[in-house]
């Protein structure tokens, strides 16, 4: 009896790993790893990247509306006091280094994976607090989950003893979608300002 449970457990574990292998970004073809931890991945419809529609303050925002601009995208949640705002501040400090002409061609987007707490105006205000060009978008939990899956980002709600109630565990990568929408450059969680700046500048060339 006990062995059956163990067997089922192992099977579930193996299945989990299998699914993770399928979705996790490292299983994607790493076309360009120039030693800086970035990964450049071609958009493959139905498999990786591509278009989606979420909302900013009830207004639909479609990724392909920004075609022609380099998109800098980050998944996080506004009540995260630590890694999310640090990453957003790093992106913002890179944006501040750009010339106005360069900045015109860049669209930074914060995608909230916590639609329950990050709503409408607050989310927009949160995103633009870091840099005026930032927009903050989200959707229903299912919609956000779908977009995250599309890009290999993960998040999961975790109940906690904290007064926060639930917490959200999530991957902390930055996704840069090329101006023609055909490639996504993935930057690691420990990127610094110059990594973002270099990736933006090489993306704009």
């Amino acid at each position: 009896m006990k062995t059956t449970y163990v067997f089922i457990g192992l099977l579930a574990f193996a299945l989990g790993i299998g699914i993770a292998q399928y979705y996790l970004p490292h299983s994607e073809p790493a076309l360009d790893t120039s030693g800086n931890g970035n990964t450049r991945v071609p958009v493959t419809p139905g498999k990786f990247g591509g278009d989606f529609t979420l909302k900013q303050d009830d207004q639909p925002v479609k990724l392909s509306d920004f075609r022609g601009k380099l998109i800098v995208m980050y998944f996080g949640y506004a009540s995260c006091p630590d890694v999310c705002p640090t990453t957003l501040a790093i992106i913002a400090s890179a944006l501040r280094e750009l010339t106005p002409k360069e900045l015109e061609k860049v669209q930074p987007i914060f995608i909230s994976v916590d639609p329950q707490r990050d709503q409408g105006e607050n989310l927009a205000a949160y995103a633009s607090h870091f840099h005026p060009s930032f927009i903050g978008i989200t959707g229903t939990e299912d919609e956000v989950q779908k977009v995250a899956n599309q890009y290999g980002a993960f998040f999961i709600k975790v109940e906690s003893d904290s007064a926060m109630g639930y917490l959200v565990d999530h991957t902390s990568k930055t996704y840069m979608v090329s101006q023609d929408g055909k490639y996504v450059t993935i930057l690691p969680h420990d990127m610094i300002r110059d990594d973002v700046l270099n990736a933006i500048r090489s993306g704009l060339q």
Binding site: I156, S160, M164, L167, T171
Partner: peptide, 9 residues
Amino acid sequence: NGEMMRMRQ
């Protein structure tokens, strides 16, 4: 935790 960022009290 692997690729996941987690926060705990």
